[in-house]
Design a protein around this nucleic acid. Structure first.
Lengths: 145, 145
DNA sequence: AAACCTATATAGCCATACTATGTAAATCAG
DNA sequence: CTGATTTACATAGTATGGCTATATAGGTTT
């Protein structure tokens, strides 16, 4: 285990977490991270079962059950009975949920914009590439689509 | 506000938050993020007042007060009366806290190692540069040292 | 001296996260 | 087919991190 790699992973997480706190304070935490994280996954991955959604969001199933209940009350998601398994539900995002997610993403970008206002094109490119690497390695798709 | 920049910031946060959840589950969340985030700041920035520590950690002062109480009980930090202001405390990390932070960082790196095992040298470099950019832009040092 | 600002502690509330458990459907083995 | 096992989701309980509001008291300014 190379020390350099270890150090990179440590620093990566520290930075990631600081960034999430910066974002939380700048946006006033008006929309909880768990909400938009879940809506985001539903947008990119399509409708998912509660358990699969929990795995994709990296929380336990009971946590996701409660979150889905809340999201359904807010009409941000809806439930579809899974025809393949009568125990299961598919959870899908509503148009209202899609709009809410878009609004949140815009609000987030606006709040963070001043922080990263001085990014050079090179720096932007580096961050874009880093995001791509992270997306691949924290992919929410765990099985063949 | 360029759409491309906006999209980058959105994706950056989404990725950051996913990464923190991946880390939380892989490490079993044995040490709360708020703890190591605070210890990390004390390590890099030296002893700080409660309010300053709160600002650096991006939480409110009462939140930090409680966290410091907990950390002090665990003997991970200690308090120093601020000679410049009798209302204030300086919070400093203990050797035990330093050890705990190092252990946590090692544990984190080990847990994340398999996730990023296939990183190429180029990708590592990109992530290192990205971390550097993020560190500059989420700096905890808000005033001249 | 009074007004105002600042530093920290306490109180109360909410949401996210976990583990444990329960109910019921689906699958597997004999 | 039956029983055992696994799986999917809901409920219950707990801990904690985060917030806002407020209180106490020291420090600074007018």
């Amino acid at each position: 285990m190379p020390t350099e790699r270890s150090r990179l992973l440590e620093d990566l997480i520290v930075s990631a977490h600081r960034l999430t706190r910066v974002a939380a304070q700048l946006t006033g935490s008006t929309t909880p991270a768990a909400v938009w994280r879940t809506l985001s996954i539903l947008t990119t991955d399509g409708s998912l079962r509660v358990g699969d959604l929990a795995r994709a969001s990296r929380v336990t199933q009971p946590t996701m059950t409660k979150l889905v209940q809340h999201l359904a009350e807010e009409e941000l998601v809806y439930r579809i009975a899974d025809v393949d398994d009568s125990r299961a539900w598919l959870i899908a995002i509503t148009p209202k949920g899609t709009t809410a997610l878009e609004n949140w993403r815009r609000e987030l970008a606006e709040a963070l914009s001043p922080v990263f206002a001085d990014l050079t094109d090179d720096e932007s490119t580096i961050l874009e590439k880093a995001v791509a690497i992270l997306q691949v390695h924290t992919s929410t798709t765990r099985k063949a689509a």
